[in-house]
Simulated scan of single mutants.
Amino acid sequence: MIEVEVKARINSFEEMEKRLKDLGAVKTKDEFQEDIYFQSPIVDFAKTDEALRIRTTNNDTFITYKGPKLNEKAKTRKEVEMSIESASKASDIFTEIGFAPARTVRKSRQYYQYENFEISLDDVEGLPPYMEIEIALSDSDDYTEAQNRIFELFEKLGITDGFERTSYMELLENLNNE
């Protein structure tokens, strides 16, 4: 699967909730997420622009691999995800084979659905408010049109700047390095 995702810093959750409602987006759920990112013993994920994480939510746990970004405009990349039973056991396995925990990112997320877009309002510990809009495509789909549609939706919502291609983990790392 190819995930086409764009995030932007927003002024307030309340303002964006109203704009989403006015647009006709439907709130689908609230969720707390804890993501533990790992560093490979073989490849420097910061240099290759990849990510490996274990995500725990209110109800589920997943391992996710995110490949390198495919272009300069959006955070478009291959994503492979699978459900697992235990975050701690998966973390133990990763650690035993040489992967090291790099950072934990915690966020409260409100999900909205609009047409075939998944929209989330993200309250990430240590960061200002963000909104992400994404579309999932098959590996053979053209992602350029999807990217353009995402930016058009941001514009409909009154957002024309503040876009970010880096992950929340990278944003938090950059804060620590300032």
Score class of each variant (00 low, 15 high):
Val6Arg: 02
Lys69Asn: 07
Lys47Trp: 02
Glu155His: 12
Glu134Trp: 06
Gly24Ala: 11
Leu157Ser: 04
Lys78Gly: 13
Glu96Asn: 11
Arg109Phe: 02
Glu134Gln: 05
Lys75Thr: 11
Val124Phe: 03
Asn116Ala: 11
Arg55His: 06
Leu171Ala: 14
Ala25Tyr: 00
Ser108Ile: 05
Arg103Gln: 15
Leu127Asn: 08
Arg77Met: 10
Val43Ile: 15
Thr144Tyr: 06
Leu175Cys: 08
Gln110Ser: 15
Ser12Lys: 03
Ser40Met: 09
Arg103Asn: 14
Glu14Met: 00
Val4Glu: 00
Arg55Cys: 04
Glu85Ala: 11
Ser167Asn: 11
Leu171Trp: 02
Ser91Gly: 09
Phe38Asp: 02
Thr48Asn: 06
Leu137Ile: 01
Thr76Gln: 06
Thr56Phe: 06
Glu173Leu: 11
Ile133His: 07
Arg149His: 04
Asn59Ile: 05
Thr48Leu: 01
Glu170Val: 10
Asp60Leu: 13
Asn176Met: 12
Glu14Val: 03
Lys89Glu: 12
Pro129Arg: 14
Lys107Tyr: 03
Ser167Met: 12
Leu52Phe: 13
Tyr37Phe: 15
Pro68Cys: 05
Pro129His: 10
Glu178His: 15
Glu134Thr: 02
Arg103Ser: 12
Pro128Thr: 10
Glu115Met: 10
Lys18Asp: 10
Arg9Tyr: 08
Asn71Leu: 07
Tyr111Glu: 07
Ala87Cys: 10
Asn59Tyr: 11
Pro128Asp: 14
Leu153Glu: 02
Val26Leu: 10
Ala146Lys: 00
Ser40Ile: 06
Lys78Tyr: 12
Met16Phe: 03
Asn116Leu: 08
Asp22Cys: 00
Thr95Tyr: 09
Thr160Pro: 01
Ser40Phe: 07
Glu125Ala: 14
Lys66Tyr: 11
Thr160Leu: 02
Glu81Gly: 02
Asp141Val: 01
Leu121Cys: 11
Asn148His: 06
Gly162Arg: 02
Thr160Phe: 01
Met169Lys: 11
Ser86His: 12
Lys18Glu: 13
Leu127Pro: 04
Asp142Cys: 05
Asn177Thr: 11
Ser40Lys: 04
Asp123Met: 12
Val80Ala: 10
Glu115Trp: 01
Ala100Gln: 15
Ser88Met: 13
Phe94Glu: 00
Arg109Met: 08
Asn59Trp: 03
Asn177Leu: 13
Leu153Asn: 07
Arg55Gln: 07
Thr64Cys: 14
Gln39Ser: 12
Leu23Ala: 03
Glu115Arg: 15
Thr57Asn: 09
Glu96His: 14
Tyr168Arg: 05
Val105Lys: 00
Pro128Phe: 12
Arg106His: 07
Arg165Phe: 03
Gln147Arg: 01
Tyr130Arg: 08
Asn116Phe: 08
Leu127Met: 11
Pro41Gly: 09
Asp123Tyr: 10
Asn11Leu: 05
Phe163Trp: 03
Glu132Cys: 08
Glu145Gly: 10
Ile42Phe: 10
Ile84Pro: 01
Ile159Thr: 03
Gly126Ala: 05
Glu155Cys: 08
Tyr130His: 13
Glu85Pro: 03
Asn11Trp: 05
Gly162Gln: 05
Ile119Asp: 04
Glu31Tyr: 06
Glu152His: 08
Gly126Glu: 05
Phe151Glu: 02
Arg55Ile: 04
Gly158Trp: 02
Asn148Glu: 11
Tyr114Ala: 01
Glu152Gln: 14
Tyr130Thr: 09
Leu175Gly: 03
Leu127Tyr: 02
Asn148Met: 02
Gln147His: 01
Glu85Cys: 09
Thr56Leu: 07
